[in-house]
Nucleic acid binder design. Structure first.
Length: 197
DNA sequence: TCTAGGATCGGCT
DNA sequence: GCCGATCCTAGAT
C-alpha cells in the first residue's frame, strides 16, 4: 500500500476544486498496529476569510487556526464540542486560510484495525461516516495538527492510486452543522460520492 | 478571568 | 427524529 502522495501543487488551487478532486483519493494512516487506507467519499470546502462558517472568517487568526494560515498540504486538526476531532487539509497558500474538511470514506485497508478502535458492535458502514468517527478510527488528534500530508514518510498522508470519480457520481449539497453561518449555510460546498446516478 | 456556544455522536423515544 | 454529553476555544469583561 504505497501509491504516490498528492503533490503540494494539488492543494494550491481553489478550495472547491481541491475538494472535488479529493473524492476517490486515499487517506493513509500508519499506526503502530498497521496501516489503514480510506477512500474519501465525503468532504466539505471552507472558504476562508469570506466564509462565515469558516474558522478564519474575517481574518480570525488564533493559536487554534494558525495551521490554516500556513502552507497548503498540511493537516489542520481541531476539537469540536469538546469531544470530537476533525481533520482538514489546508489549501491555497500562506495568508489564504482555506481548507477541506474530511468527513468520511470507505475503508480499503485495515478494517480490522478500525473495528478494534471503534468497537465491535458498530455497523460496517458506520465505522468512518463522520469527521469525528474518522478521527477516532485513525487515532487522529491535535498532535497531528500541522503534519505534512505531502511527505511520503508522514504517518498521515493522502495518496492517488489512479482511482477517479466521474462528475455524475458527485453530488453537491449544503454543509452540515453550520446553521449559524446565515446564507453561507446553504452554499453547496459539501461534496459526496454517490454509488448510482 | 468568565462565559457562551460549537464544522458531532450515539442512545433513546 | 430528538436530545444530552462534554470541554475547548474565542471573545467579552
Amino acid at each position: 500500500m504505497n501509491p504516490p502522495v498528492l503533490a503540494r501543487e494539488f492543494y494550491q488551487r481553489p478550495t472547491d476544486v481541491v475538494a472535488r478532486e479529493m473524492l476517490g483519493k486515499l487517506l493513509i494512516r500508519v499506526l503502530p498496529q498497521g496501516v489503514v487506507a480510506i477512500r474519501l467519499n465525503e468532504v466539505e470546502a471552507y472558504l476562508g476569510v469570506d466564509d462565515p462558517a469558516c474558522h478564519t472568517y474575517r481574518g480570525r487568526r488564533t493559536q487554534r487556526t494558525e495551521t490554516m494560515w500556513g502552507e497548503a498540504g498540511h493537516a489542520y486538526v481541531y476539537l469540536v464540542y469538546g469531544i470530537h476531532h476533525c481533520l482538514n487539509v489546508v489549501t491555497l497558500g500562506p495568508g489564504l486560510p482555506e481548507a477541506v474538511l474530511i468527513r468520511g470514506g470507505e475503508i480499503v485497508v485495515g478494517a480490522d484495525l478500525v473495528r478494534e478502535r471503534r468497537g465491535p458492535r458498530i455497523a460496517e458502514r458506520c465505522l468512518v461516516d463522520g469527521p469525528g468517527k474518522l478521527c477516532q478510527a485513525l487515532a487522529i488528534d491535535r498532535s497531528d495538527d500541522g503534519v505534512d500530508l505531502c511527505n511520503r514518510s508522514s504517518l498521515l498522508r493522502v495518496c492517488d492510486d489512479g482511482h477517479s470519480v466521474p462528475d455524475e457520481r458527485v453530488r453537491r449539497v449544503s454543509r452540515v452543522g453550520v446553521d449559524y453561518a446565515g446564507e453561507a449555510a446553504s452554499w453547496l460546498l459539501r461534496l459526496v460520492t454517490v454509488s448510482t446516478v
